[in-house]
Design a protein around this nucleic acid. Sequence first.
DNA 1: TTGAAAGCGCTAACAG
DNA 2: CTGTTAGCGCTTTCAA
Lengths: 343, 343
Amino acid sequence: MIKKKISIKDIARLTNTSITTVSFVLNGKGRISKEISKKILDVAQKNGYEPNRMAIGLRTGVSKVIGLIVETIGGPFFGAMAKVIEEEAEKAGYGVIYCSTNNNIQKGKDVIKMLSQQLVDGYIITPMKGLEKEIQNLVANEKPVVLIDGYFPGIDIPHVLVDNYGSSYNAIEFLIKSGYKNIGFVTADLELVQLNDRMQGYKDALKAGGIKEDKKKIFKLPFDAEREEAVNAIKTFISQQNQMDAIFFTTNYLGIMGLQSINELKLNIPGELAVISFDDNEIFNLYPPGITTVRQPTYEIAKSAIDMLLSQMTAEKYNIAKIKLQIPATLIERGSTTTLVTK
Amino acid sequence: MIKKKISIKDIARLTNTSITTVSFVLNGKGRISKEISKKILDVAQKNGYEPNRMAIGLRTGVSKVIGLIVETIGGPFFGAMAKVIEEEAEKAGYGVIYCSTNNNIQKGKDVIKMLSQQLVDGYIITPMKGLEKEIQNLVANEKPVVLIDGYFPGIDIPHVLVDNYGSSYNAIEFLIKSGYKNIGFVTADLELVQLNDRMQGYKDALKAGGIKEDKKKIFKLPFDAEREEAVNAIKTFISQQNQMDAIFFTTNYLGIMGLQSINELKLNIPGELAVISFDDNEIFNLYPPGITTVRQPTYEIAKSAIDMLLSQMTAEKYNIAKIKLQIPATLIERGSTTTLVTK
DNA sequence: TTGAAAGCGCTAACAG
DNA sequence: CTGTTAGCGCTTTCAA
């Protein structure tokens, strides 16, 4: 039962009409008589007609597809986003295709190139340093773009992300209020605004709390470190501190490796070391005694991003209202940061 | 600096040649003189020429894109797969686009429909009951398809997945050899061959170990249960057993909720209850005392799947050599299943 | 070695 | 209300 794909022309032939008529009926344009309409619809239905997106795309210049370029496919953060973006896009008649950059600039460029070959109408992109030019090109070509999870300082492209500065600030402030005074900071050695903002929040919160910043308490893990290597590096970092009583991890990923490090060092949480990690995760909920986290508003971010994109795509005029959208995070308090009574 | 997309025709005009010539040069077909070639290449380069995939697709009937339809985007299992599939596909000149079904039949149908509208040349699909017809249709239309993570019993479509039966059998056998005798089994209430195969492995291993199967030790969690509801159900199940000494979870997802249940019941692992879960996961490595798991060979599965697909796509003739590929899993032994000396 | 021209499936102005 | 027709950008046959 090989159903050769049937075309609009075939339907026209089968129904003794013209392709225009068929096209109109199928698209509900022009006014075609009831009976002819019905005949055409019947034949189309019976033969399982499906429009050829390529042809439509070529003709109209729109593909009705949105490209979602993320750092890693997989991973709960983008997984959750993907779901809501997909749903919203579908409501508006758009499909979504994903591509991942794996934090590799070249891969990022390749992916943008591939998608820009008329495959997608709009983009949601996790930006990374090195892609500025490509992304600006997209915008210059009047392609709708929304950045998520990051942005390019000084470049006006619509973006939506968590309030990295504020939520880090709050997390550190919370630690200080709970009685912790020697707070370590572990981040990745990547040039990402998100991470810089988180660091600034940390520094400012310390200052506001009257604590002197100590460079030795800040550790930047090389991005390309192997798992084991990374864990060892974190262990070394922790061991070198003499009286660190709390530690803040700037990402999910780092937090998990941090837990392993702390575990291997046999340090008690929070007795010997309090812990907070950015990005909530199942593991932080489960791992005893529960790890306090900064939970990103994934739903809101995704929803805002797709909304901004869709409005860009449908608006007749350029009307980029909110260029910057920073959404606050929630601090999820768990057992890893109990208030210090000894003090 | 709006660069209007330049076409092959523009290049022809700019170089005083014909579109044929340009096309030939750009594709390295026909023999065009060195100088004209150079001129064309230069102009194309300078103007940032990019072929229009839609046009090529329309003309040639191939899109050079592979569709990957999975249950959930996000989640470590598919995340890892996606990465290797992407890499291999790229080597062969294919792009990859993802779509998720979220275990929803209608969504699955919609996604297949969307992709089948000439958007992709081949499919890698996580099958689910209810999609048999759509997928058979694809095959009937001579579209290359490879199923992963599952298959349709009785329907001959190439597929590759872990040896669900064998690896469950081994896991249970391992428990028995370690001295456990009352082994519970928690699975999801979904009609998936994977799960059925895992259950059969459990039953057969019990029988082989001389242990009588006990229906009351098998629990099927309703698929649509909310998180909390699910945890409670598992807690109830565990509490009702009088002397269960080990428990096997058939998925990652269940295993994690199982841990939470066990945690809330304050049962000691493995002292009061040994634990094994299907699908390895970071959390199982970290959660004390380490949870023994059946690790799926994600790399091999993904690699085989994309290889099978690519060979289907490039082969002149239908030459589906290995229709069924079942790859063994690895049992990762951790602290949750120490050998019982008391006994 | 190069060019003219047909046509992939579809939309949409323009005619009737 | 319905049909004719001209492309969208590209590949490819055939002819020059």
